[in-house]
Design a binder for these strands. Structure first.
Lengths: 125, 125
DNA sequence: TTGCTCCTCACGTCACGTGAGGTGGC
DNA sequence: TTGCTCCTCACGTCACGTGAGGTGGC
């Protein structure tokens, strides 16, 4: 499937999907004869995962490491990343902890944001 | 009060507080003889408001407009921004709506993030 | 052949981070 | 006088946005 469809399905911009390819975060599994990026369903799943991670404030490089580690744990070694399953587990555990911590932060930020919205509402009542 | 104290109280970096001065978002009410930025309690309150707004994804320029409008509605005309109360009300109403919409987005992002954290937890179980 | 989608440079932008080198004030 | 805090350039960075000019494929 082509990048336009992928962008629509993931709610990412075409430029963003392209950028993730440029930095090696999610590289399309194939190219057409004319050079068009072709994404498999697995590629799309990875992009969806990345989109879920974005609010957690990880860098693209960190997400790349995480995706690689998860790939190792799920038994698809990804070709060029020679991570041991053990290293992968520690890495994923670290990300899990950071993810949970960030979720807590997000919750308080959300509460504050809601409070703010109501303050603005009161301002124009 | 000096920038270091302000940064600590607002949980913003010193550089960030300085940046907000540079772009005219929150300008300290005074400077010491030696050029040190001096913030009043009102200045700090504005910085706290800005920090609450950040998760809502507004640009610094937008926040500047909002702070000015709120200042007008609260009866402290801010000197250089000649906004009418009417224009201020419409602007604030717009921001209220956008803030509420972004709160909804934040809620779904949070839900997805929590789901993701649990997925990572399951991965290393 | 006409559109629409895609491509690669490559520079711009937004919100700061990060030194470099220098001064203020208890 | 010694620290610690603050100052102003000014360049770097991260995650893309935004044209410019060109091609692929139904």
């Amino acid at each position: 499937v082509q990048i336009g469809q992928v962008a629509e399905r993931t709610e990412l911009s075409v430029r963003t999907v392209r950028h993730y390819d440029e930095v090696g975060l999610v590289v399309p599994s194939a190219r057409s004869a004319g050079g068009f990026r072709l994404y498999t369903e697995d590629d799309v799943a990875q992009l969806l995962l990345v989109r879920r991670m974005k609010p957690l404030g990880f860098t693209l490089e960190e997400m790349r490491l995480l995706l690689d580690a998860v790939a190792v744990l799920e038994g698809r070694p990804d070709g060029d990343t020679p991570t041991t399953p053990d290293a992968a587990r520690t890495l994923v555990t670290g990300f899990r902890d950071r993810a949970r911590a960030r979720c807590d932060e997000l919750r308080t930020e959300l509460a504050r944001a809601e409070e703010l919205a109501e303050r603005l509402a009161a301002q124009v009542r």
